[in-house]
Design a protein around this nucleic acid. Structure first.
Length: 211
DNA sequence: ACATTAAGTGATT
DNA sequence: AATCACTTAATGT
């Protein structure tokens, strides 16, 4: 099966014929093995990968070498992070790694502008990709905001201490859990952690705030 | 000594 | 972070 037909089969429902023709002409389809690193942070990106089959992940690696997954890309998806660097040849901010064996359509960055100008279905595609990513980010932000229970507990204790004019607060983990609408187990764990951090001391039915 | 309640832990989702 | 299941510690009768 030639390039054109292959692209038509996979992308035909979202891309116009003209666009597919263009992609087939200037892009190339490549197969890669699981684990292949297509883009590394700092690389100058020459080609934009669009996932035809398989799954890729976009990750950021921090100083410690810990990798944080930003998001996954499945069939028909492209990395919007690479779109943002398409016009000028800036360096990649992210790593692009294959989670499974995959087929990618590599499309030269330098032709991207033209694509955007010429093909409405491409613009729509890019927008949709951005939207999906944005939704994902909003979700994770919500989660992060919601999951900072340890800080909520600290505030709660400080408030209680202020109200009662004492560093020694008479309260059970269960009561805190009820007030912050979480489970006792979670409160116990976080309090234990706060104790290890030297912020509080724990006793039965009492918590002491330290400075 | 025994029962009750609070707190701690590991594993799992 | 939540839930379950279970252990351990503190306290009251």
């Amino acid at each position: 099966m030639d390039k054109q037909h292959k692209l038509e089969e996979i992308l035909g429902d979202i891309f116009s014929d003209k666009l597919i023709e263009n992609l087939a002409t200037y892009g190339r389809i490549q197969k890669f093995e699981e684990g292949t690193q297509i883009i590394s942070r700092g690389d100058v990106v020459k080609d934009i990968p669009i996932v035809l089959s398989g799954t890729a992940k976009v990750v950021r690696t921090d100083e410690k070498g810990e990798e944080h997954i930003l998001f996954y890309l499945n069939e028909k998806e492209a990395c919007t992070a690479t779109f943002s660097i398409c016009s000028d040849s800036k360096k990649s901010e992210i790593d692009f790694v294959l989670e499974t064996d995959a087929e990618l359509l590599m499309y030269p960055v330098r032709l991207m502008d033209q694509l955007t100008k010429e093909f409405p279905s491409w613009r729509y595609y890019v927008c949709r990709n951005y939207n999906n990513r944005m939704k994902e980010f909003l979700n994770t932000m919500d989660t992060i905001a919601f999951m900072k229970m340890d800080q909520r507990i600290m505030k709660y204790l400080e408030k209680a201490s202020e109200a009662l004019q004492t560093k020694m607060i008479n309260i059970t983990h269960q009561e805190i859990a009820n007030d912050l609408s979480t489970s006792r187990v979670v409160v116990s764990r976080l309090l234990k952690q706060l104790e290890k951090e030297g912020k509080i001391n724990l006793y039965r039915n009492r918590i002491k705030l330290l400075d």
